[in-house]
């Protein structure tokens, strides 16, 4: 597999969220502001990349039957590292993300990539796949975060207000469902247009 391909796959063609509909919980729960969304995206990418790296480099030592528990232990180790690192250096962000930091461990994207990609591919490919998939996740979660923050609070990344009658509903839970629903609808229209052209 060409190196560039394993990197760009995750960005759009196999975007983990929009195409594969994986990892919905953190996507909707912590995208109420762009900063929280970015923090969650980076944390997930970190765990994804390093667990891919470790699993890919030890894949010949992991017995086939025991692979899932091994994956889970590797992933949960990196999640623990992230959790404690965030609590030490970014306490406000850690408080805002709350239980969703430890829950990265059950983010289906990570286990799915370990199983489907890192366990079968070389170190470099797995590294690129981890970063690519992570960036795909960041792309979507930050987009949702920005939309919700602009419409719900009138700011971007906590800047000064530029919309003066924001609808608070977008910051509340219903806004998350509305945003992802519209995003997917738009993606469907775009896909069907493209198919028509062909």
């Amino acid at each position: 597999m060409p190196k560039l391909r394993s990197f760009t796959n995750g960005l759009l063609r196999e975007n983990p969220v929009l195409v594969l509909v994986l990892g919905l919980c953190p996507l909707l729960a912590v995208s109420n502001t762009a900063i929280n969304a970015l923090g969650m995206g980076i944390a997930t990418t970190f765990v994804l990349t390093f667990s891919n790296l470790v699993i890919s480099s030890t894949r010949r030592l992991i017995p086939e039957d025991l692979r899932i528990p091994v994956f889970v232990i590797v992933i949960s180790t990196f999640v623990t590292v992230t959790d404690y690192f965030m609590a030490a250096y970014f306490p406000p962000l850690h408080r805002a993300l709350g239980v969703f930091v430890p829950l990265i461990v059950v983010n289906c994207i990570i286990l799915a990539r370990a199983e489907a990609f890192a366990y079968r591919n070389s170190l470099i490919d797995s590294l690129l796949d981890g970063i690519g998939m992570g960036l795909g996740f960041i792309l979507v979660i930050v987009t949702i975060g920005i939309i919700r923050e602009v419409l719900g609070n009138g700011t971007i990344f906590g800047s000064s207000k530029f919309i003066f009658h924001p609808g608070l509903i977008m910051v509340f839970p219903p806004g998350a469902y509305l945003t992802i629903g519209f995003l997917m609808g738009i993606l469907n229209i775009w896909n069907s247009r493209r198919r028509m052209k062909r």
């Binding site: 629903g181 997917m184 609808g185 469907n188």
Partner: peptide, 13 residues
């Protein structure tokens, strides 16, 4: 274009 997941999200909203 709204069939399936998008509608489900709107109901949830």
């Amino acid at each position: 274009p709204l069939k399936g997941y998008p509608t489900a999200f709107f109901i949830a909203a």
